[in-house]
Design a protein around this nucleic acid. Structure first.
Length: 231
DNA sequence: ACATAGGCACACCGCCACAA
DNA sequence: TTGTGGCGGTGTGCCTATGT
């Protein structure tokens, strides 16, 4: 991470956390030493960013401080456009609607010279016709992932073999053209990926699952050698 | 109940070494 | 040259135990 990016990130972290944040916390999140954080804080304070540090307490960003207005580059707009176009095509109806709203909201705040970019068809992600129809309510699956609630269903393999599964859904991943629900499978006692189009009789259970080390998404990603930001 | 001392956690600084 | 990490040290605020 470039230093300028890190300085920006420090402000974002302090804004996000609102309360007191120690240099140690910042160092861990930014993956730099505490010494570097101290230097960065001094640099920000020199730029008149109202960060207050107190010995034995931590750092606080004075309320009311705001960054200068953000503006997107052409590439950033097209990245957003691509993401929302893909979501509109491949996401569930609720996500598709949300993607449309995102475009409308961003378009409303862009300056006149950039607005045509977000409204244009310069980036498209039309359906190739290879979409696999899914009966499972993916919007509700997303909700269950957020709320850490279990799913129960009968899973059909490609060979037509069925088995009853109760899983701890961790993430909904799109491996075009199919969606996969990655979760901890109670039957196999291991991580498994399930295609929603092969899940029959999905039962959205009220049972919640714990944030148990070894069974979290981060544990799966580590095991498979994924970087969190790449997944 | 109040004052004090000590421990702890943290901010902050200077210095040095190292790498790009 | 610049950015970074590590180390050692100082100052400060909070909390708790202890003494009056």
């Amino acid at each position: 991470m470039r230093r300028a990016d890190r300085l920006f990130e420090i402000i974002q972290i302090l804004r996000r956390r609102r309360g007191v944040t120690t240099a140690q916390d910042l160092a861990e999140e930014l993956e730099v030493s505490v010494r570097t954080v101290y230097r960065d804080i001094v640099a920000l304070q020199a730029q008149r960013v109202p960060i207050e540090g107190e010995a034995g307490i931590g750092y606080v960003l004075r309320q009311g401080y705001d960054l200068p207005p953000l503006m997107f580059t052409q590439d950033e707009i097209e990245a957003l456009l691509l993401g929302t176009r893909i979501t509109q095509t491949w996401g569930d109806p609720e996500l598709a609607k949300a993607a449309k709203n995102v475009i409308a909201k961003i378009g409303a705040v862009l300056p006149d010279n950039l607005r045509p970019s977000i409204m244009s068809q310069s980036i498209a992600a039309p359906s190739s016709g290879s979409q696999v129809p899914v009966e499972t309510d993916l919007a509700r699956v997303r909700q269950w992932i957020r709320e850490k609630r279990k799913l129960h269903f009968n899973y059909q393999t490609a060979e037509g073999k069925g088995s009853n599964r109760t899983i701890w859904p961790l993430t909904l991943a799109f491996f075009g053209p199919v969606w996969n629900i990655l979760g901890w499978c109670e039957l196999r006692q291991d991580f498994r990926a399930f295609r929603p189009d092969r899940m029959i009789g999905v039962d959205f259970l009220d049972d919640m699952f714990p944030d148990q080390p070894g069974r979290r998404l981060i544990d799966f990603l580590k095991r498979e050698g994924y970087e969190l930001e790449d997944f």
